[in-house]
Structure formats: structure tokens, C-alpha cells
Design a protein around this nucleic acid. Sequence first.
DNA 1: GCCAACGTTGGC
DNA 2: GCCAACGTTGGC
Length: 162
Amino acid sequence: MRYWLMKSEPDEFSIDDLERAPGQSVAWFGVRNYQARNFMRDQMQVDDPVFFYHSSCPQPGIAGLARVSRLAYPDQTQFDPTSKYFDPAATAERPRWFNVEVTFVQKTRLLALAELRADPAVAGLTLLARGSRLSITPVDAGHWDHICTRLLGLSAARGAAR
DNA sequence: GCCAACGTTGGC
DNA sequence: GCCAACGTTGGC
């Protein structure tokens, strides 16, 4: 099992939107970065725990927990000419972009980026790396546990969504 | 709105 | 295959 952090702009799709989604499960479509795609396509497994991170907003930070609910499959928006994620180079035979699905676990208090940066125990989080822009990043088990139990006050079991 | 950092594109 | 130009991300 691996742990992940997935960024979303709350204006586009927030933790509240995930909670309200039918079945509380959604396709994580629109990723157009190869490294992030590869994480989804090659490494993410059903039930992997996910930090849901709000980016490009007044209070960037972790806003909740989710988990992977479906293995990666071709991102349908790449085939849709009316979508802003349309990719003319993609074909059904040779899809270029993939997405997993994630499901809602729970909201948390907003754990601000600034608070993460200030905590030496999570130094090394890919999210915090200089110039890091990746929308999907892996999280070490130790960092996951520290954030859940020490910073968010959750039980480790709840945090791991078992 | 600024801008640093990084990724992608395309001419050569 | 190099690399300049351009586009995007995302915190501030």
C-alpha cells in the first residue's frame, strides 16, 4: 500500500464536492502531466489512502482524506473535442492519459501548507520540495502517520481508511 | 498580478 | 538531440 497527496483547486472540485458526489466517488480526470499520470497508471492501487489537498486558493492545504476506489483507466476527456482536456493526439487504441477514481473518506480541519512547512517531522514531503508542482505526489508511511495522528488528531486506523 | 520553477514544443 | 521560446503551476 502506498500513500498519496492529490491536489485540486477547490473552485474546480473541492472536498465538499467529493462528499456530495454520487456514491462519493469520482474520476480524477484532467491530469496532463506525465509523472502524475504514471503514478496513477502504474502505482496507485485500490484502497490506497489519499490526502485531498486544496491548491490555488486563499488557504492552500490538506482539507480531507480520500482513498483510491478504482484502478487507472483511460481519461475520457482526452477524446472529447468540447473538453478543455481534449488531446487530439490521443486515440482509443492509444490513449495517452489515464485516471483513477477516488472516494470520500472524511473532511479534516484545514491543515495549511504553511503549517506543514513549519514542521520538521514532515520535511522531505515531495509536496514541500523546492519548485514542486506535481498534482499527485507520494507520501511516506511515516509522514502519513505523523500528519494523521499528530497534526490532524486522527487515529492511525482512521487515517489509513481500513 | 508577480514570478520562480518546471515542462513542453519545435526549429535546426 | 540541443536548447530557446513559450506555457503552466501555484504560492505569495
